[in-house]
């Protein structure tokens, strides 16, 4: 704050914060990815494992759309700190989820 020029105004100086086109594409994609699971599950087109798979796949795609179109992951200058912290975050999220499943599956107390 003290060194780079002005908090509120400095924002523009970095430039390249996406274009109207990319925002619209992102918006449409995220709506489609929301509608697909909603329609499939509400109308009982898929059930059980298939439903879970559809939900998970669309959720992951939704995550990517958010990162690429709204979080500007593609437009970062080097060094790519945002990308690095994202990868570390993913590693830790995977550890939390898979680790918990692994620990709880063989847990003799929880059963």
């Amino acid at each position: 704050m003290a060194q780079h020029q002005g908090g509120a105004h400095g924002h523009d100086a970095h430039g390249g914060h996406g274009s109207l086109k990319s925002y619209v594409i992102g918006f449409v994609l995220s709506i489609i990815l929301t509608i697909i699971p909603l329609v499939l599950v509400l109308n009982d087109y898929v059930e059980g494992t298939a439903a879970n798979v559809v939900l998970l796949v669309t959720a992951v795609l939704q995550f990517l759309v958010q990162l690429l179109f709204f979080m500007h992951l593609r437009e970062e200058n080097k060094p790519r700190y945002n990308l690095m912290s994202l990868l570390l975050g993913l590693l830790i999220v995977l550890t939390i989820v898979l680790g918990s499943i692994w620990i709880m599956t063989y847990n003799t107390v929880a059963h």
Partner: peptide
């Protein structure tokens, strides 16, 4: 000691 088995 929670007992998640030898592997864990």
């Amino acid at each position: 000691t929670m007992g998640s088995g030898a592997d864990v």
